[in-house]
Design a protein around this nucleic acid. Sequence first.
DNA 1: TTATTATGACCGACCGGTCGGTCAAAAACA
DNA 2: TGTTTTTGACCGACCGGTCGGTCATAATAA
Lengths: 220, 220
Amino acid sequence: MTPKIINREEKSREIALAALTVFAEHGFESTSMSQVAEAAGIGKGTIYEYFHSKTDLIIAATAAWVQNIEEGITPLLDSDMDPLTRLRTLFAASTKAFLDDPKVILVFLGISQLVIKDPALGQRFGGAEVISAPIRKVICSILADGVAAGLFHVHVLENSESIARNLVAFVDGIGLHYVTNPHAFDLAEQINFYLEQLIATLSVAPNGDRSPGVRGKRNR
Amino acid sequence: MTPKIINREEKSREIALAALTVFAEHGFESTSMSQVAEAAGIGKGTIYEYFHSKTDLIIAATAAWVQNIEEGITPLLDSDMDPLTRLRTLFAASTKAFLDDPKVILVFLGISQLVIKDPALGQRFGGAEVISAPIRKVICSILADGVAAGLFHVHVLENSESIARNLVAFVDGIGLHYVTNPHAFDLAEQINFYLEQLIATLSVAPNGDRSPGVRGKRNR
DNA sequence: TTATTATGACCGACCGGTCGGTCAAAAACA
DNA sequence: TGTTTTTGACCGACCGGTCGGTCATAATAA
């Protein structure tokens, strides 16, 4: 019944990965389906056998991208390194990934624009939240370990979600600024400055006194 | 000899402002020149009397946007409020501006994509740095005042550029996350959390001891 | 043959940009 | 003052080209 037994799942992912690289090269809207087809080594019509529309394709490409990140990041979860080193390693890795291929952010911008224009779209792949979810998860895990190890202040726990979210938002923001003008500042230095400042804030002060700033949220 | 002597400067700005609103509505690439013309209440061809290309138009629109921000922000420079209040006011204003018209970020994304694709373009309007320059300037000024007033640690001074840059990057990043998924978190709360944490870090500790984290940059 | 997969020629919509021409105001003239 | 001339602002029909998406056909395997 099935003549050419094709693993649709796998081929979809192949196409999505090809799309990811092309989108990252020229941006989403500026990339034509023909270019994607060429990059994937297939005919243009074939893409539509696997994806209903160009929008569906960038959704899949984004998902593949997130999965890549996730795979590169999760080893840090159950590492036996101490939390501080893990945190620094995580962000050194992020920085490196950014410097190695700065233009992947174009994919992020592309999907962001689509979601902004059509919020309902965000639901199609579980909400735009999923993009940053894996990294946030790892960060929270590290924070929890840090608290358990007595390195971080206990109040870090109740705010770990907010801390993680802000951290990721910062990296995205500074990354966007960086690709927009790479000569303006040193990305690694800037990220590192943020991180060390954060660590100092989270850490239990050397004298055993509480470090300020993570006591709890303040509303105004 | 001249029929209706027109203030080209002013009309350019008019068109740019119209373009700004339309770009903010549908995004740069998805907006046609006809739509801009309609929004500006002029013919399509007229736009090309004032701008050489669509790219030139978004550059002008961005400049106008930055100028708007600048005008709304500079009063905070020479205010006689204390630095802490000024800082909080500044970010309350930013948050409000964001919540009032979240989609202006589409313009930022549009110009970012263009600059990433063609870095030489960034030079055309003085480098992409100029977009955030006014806010960074205000922040640095506040920080300096804070140090002078004895509120902030002296070491804040030598890092004020980095602090300001990170602050702006964070706001951009969290803003982008927010418009991408407004239901995921409370923007004001999140920005406020960051700000209070930062203030705590910058502040001279109540006991007169140095607050950690702004001692200087660390390279790794 | 039959069912499934692959393909690229094709389509209609649309877009950025151009261009010849219109129009009204100002200058020049009477 | 009235009339003619000049000129730049303004316009939208139009053009070359591109794009997302379709579909009739070919290829392939059962």
